[in-house]
Amino acid sequence: MLDLLIRFQNMDRRWVFLGMALAIVLPMLVPFSLPFKVDQRVQDLYDRVEALEAGDTVYISADFDPGSRPELEPFFRTHLHHLFRQDVRVVMGTLWATAPPLVKPILEDIAQEYGKEYGKDWTFLGYVEGKELAIKSLGQSVRKTYPLDDRGNKTADLAVMAGLDAMRDFDILTSVSAGFPGTQAFVLQIQGQYNLEMASACTAVSAPDYIPYYQSGQLFGLSGGMPGSAQYEKLVYASVPPEKRPRLPATSGMNVLSIGHLYIIILLLLGNLAFFLTRGGEEN
């Protein structure tokens, strides 16, 4: 038995990899559904967007790329549906060079689905380099930071930008952030200085870092990783009949995530069990 446990501890790590792959693939091939609750942080985010009125304006900083797509794209899509459903004007920009080819088509498709007009109801301002300098500049003037939109139009001439220049002119700022530059840089550079109403959807890795900003009221809502996205999907699509809902990737991913987590917890338990049982033997 002791020998078996020692061998178990020292087994080739590729067996662990294979187990991980199976823990992810099998629940996809045999799908199941488990209910989950909505976190207060996500509920607050949803409630604030629900309270927006037609014609209000939202600035989205879409700072993510394919490297964090499964965590943030579901939130991003659902957020756009939520905003357009509320008849809100959407202005979007990004601080990540590899974001525009990913985020622009999504915005375009969803805006089209709701019959929204480019330049009047929504716009994509494109990418700007400069990280914190760009954020500071956005705090002062969105028009100056992005003199042209993604299509080459003058940002100041767009109807959607009427009466909007500094970031505080927008009703809400949503940061969909996969790291730096993202939520943290926005909070530090302009949220406090201009007292902006700001929400964040971040990757799971960043969530524990951003919780203090939610607790201190610097963020009015926070969605962390795939569970946050799934909870937001649940809230936004609650009023839509199941047959009319699009595929909800975060919701279906939650069940796979359950098995993945369970696999890691079992590994941790087995590893520790083997460690404690073999420790005496190894010492002898």
């Binding site: 662990v16 990899f17 991980m20 992810i24 696999y263 890691i264 590994l267 087995l270 590893g271």
Partner: peptide, 14 residues
């Protein structure tokens, strides 16, 4: 994801 599983199994000891 795969490396974190392996690291958890091999190094995460109480």
């Amino acid at each position: 994801a795969f490396y974190i599983a392996s690291a958890g199994f091999r190094a995460f000891r109480a």
